[in-house]
């Protein structure tokens, strides 16, 4: 379906996510890393979930991990996605530790598969994660739907 409205992806985030968006704007995928016990965590929070230290530093990630599961959405509450269904997302276990939910290209691999997660700024100006197969690094550049998601909104 051709998008017709000016709907944007959901833009609501808590303040703790701001550094992730700042990094994504510079093309970097950064997560909180505990300076006390080295735990890498996601989603962002106010303390290390292991040792409760508040010494958390946003640190560059390789994004490598395993795609554990994927789903093709045929329903959404959000006009942006409703106009673009079906939409594919997946769950990735990063080698660094945490599990993330990420957008996938339409031509996503079947799980389990090695993928690389990268962070981007979406049309609402917020960080989103995208996972592509390690052996198909062009999958993001070739996916018009994802390119639109992370393009600057022309208004």
């Amino acid at each position: 379906m051709k998008p017709t409205s000016s709907a944007l992806p959901p833009g609501l985030r808590s303040r703790i996510t701001l550094p992730m968006t700042d990094a994504a704007a510079k093309g970097r995928f950064e997560l909180q890393v505990c300076q006390h016990c080295s735990t890498v965590q996601y989603p962002p929070r106010e303390a290390c979930h292991r040792c409760l230290s508040n010494q958390l530093v946003w640190t560059l990630q390789s994004g490598e991990g395993e795609l554990l599961a994927k789903t093709v959405l045929h329903h959404s509450f959000e006009p942006y996605f409703l106009e673009r269904l079906p939409w594919t997302i997946g769950m990735v276990k990063l080698d660094a530790g945490p599990t993330v939910i990420a957008h996938l290209p339409t031509q996503a691999p079947q799980p389990p598969a090695r993928v690389r997660v990268s962070a981007h700024v979406d049309q609402s100006g917020q960080a989103v994660l995208i996972a592509v197969a390690m052996d198909k690094p062009d999958a993001l550049a070739n996916d018009t739907r994802l390119q639109e998601l992370i393009s600057e909104k022309n208004t």
């Binding site: 996510t17 959405l73 917020q126």
Partner: peptide, 14 residues
């Protein structure tokens, strides 16, 4: 809000 809903799923379905 920060890490699931932005990916488009309608609530817990995704």
């Amino acid at each position: 809000q920060d890490a699931v809903y932005p990916y488009g799923a309608a609530g817990a379905n995704g």
